[in-house]
């Protein structure tokens, strides 16, 4: 993009890049440094020896897995349907779904609270899984539909001519073609559901049910605002997503580039 032929401009641009990235790294360094302050690695030992910690991790993993499953199934089918099937008034439904994109989670807390206590799901993981999945679906459908629109209709028609019904077309023609966008959706949904805070804070009351994002808050209460332990807990909760992102980075970018908002 930029001219990098002369050494001078190259060095200047490299320095510029470094300077812009620096503020992004600074809080991360402060985080790790703060977590090692005081009693050093013992902070981590204290956090890790907390008997409830594995529970928090398992809850978060279950939550993310369930949300990912629901979102992936709904998104792939919805994208296929909106893009390739002839359904009456499908644009109206699509538009309705896009309106839901603007729905802020915080608007829903009062009605959701009423619904959840009525059906007795309060303080169970389901009370977080379903709303989180529902709130993600509009955006993932938008992304995936853009992607599926780019797949030629001829492929679907060819499958039909060969005698495949809709379900077979979906499974054997569309699913393999949709892999890149599914990877991007997976990463996006994993990040969002692992990081869900508001609904977990409201609907999960006992520590046995709570997720990893509530751990720093838990420590604030437990250790009387011992910052170093809070930060150690923060590093530990952040680690899985960072690792997941680094490994899936390439798929994520490729998928987004392919399905990107145009």
């Amino acid at each position: 993009m930029f001219e990098t032929k002369t050494l001078r401009s190259r060095i200047l641009l490299q320095i510029l890049l470094g300077l812009i990235v620096l503020p992004f790294v600074f809080p991360l360094i402060a985080m790790v440094q703060g977590s090692l302050a005081g009693s050093g690695w013992n902070n981590y030992r204290t956090v890790l020896s907390l008997p409830l910690l594995p529970g928090f991790f398992i809850n978060s993993a279950l939550l993310s897995a369930a949300v990912i499953l629901i979102v992936l199934v709904c998104t792939t089918m919805a994208a296929f349907g909106f893009s390739k099937l002839h359904i009456r008034a499908k644009e109206v439904y699509f538009w309705m779904l896009m309106v839901a994109l603007t729905l802020p989670g915080v608007v829903l807390i009062a009605p959701l609270f009423a619904t959840i206590t009525r059906i007795g799901a309060y303080n169970t993981l389901w009370s977080v899984i379903l709303p989180v999945a529902a709130l993600q679906i509009p955006f993932t459908v938008l992304l995936a539909r853009n992607f599926v629109d780019g797949i030629p209709n001829e492929l679907v028609e060819a499958a039909r001519v060969d005698g495949a019904n809709t379900i077979r077309t979906f499974r054997h023609v569309m699913m393999p073609l949709m892999k890149p966008i599914m990877a991007a959706v997976l990463v996006l949904v994993f990040i969002n559901s692992w990081n869900e805070f508001l609904l977990a804070l409201l609907f999960l009351q006992t520590p046995e049910q709570q997720t990893i994002t509530l751990v720093p808050q838990f420590f604030v209460g437990q250790y009387n605002n011992d910052q170093t332990k809070v930060l150690a807990a923060a590093v530990l909760t952040g680690l899985p997503v960072v690792i997941a992102y680094i490994f899936l980075q390439r798929f994520f970018e490729r998928g987004l580039a392919a399905g990107a908002l145009k």
């Binding site: 990040i191 994002t213 992102y245 980075q249």
Partner: peptide
């Protein structure tokens, strides 16, 4: 650099808020 810029996105606010408070 790409990874460094994106790491803040993947971290939960709940995880990073204590850092900023500190």
């Amino acid at each position: 650099h790409k990874v460094l810029i994106f790491i803040p996105v993947v971290l939960a606010t709940a995880t990073t808020a204590p850092v900023f408070r500190q």
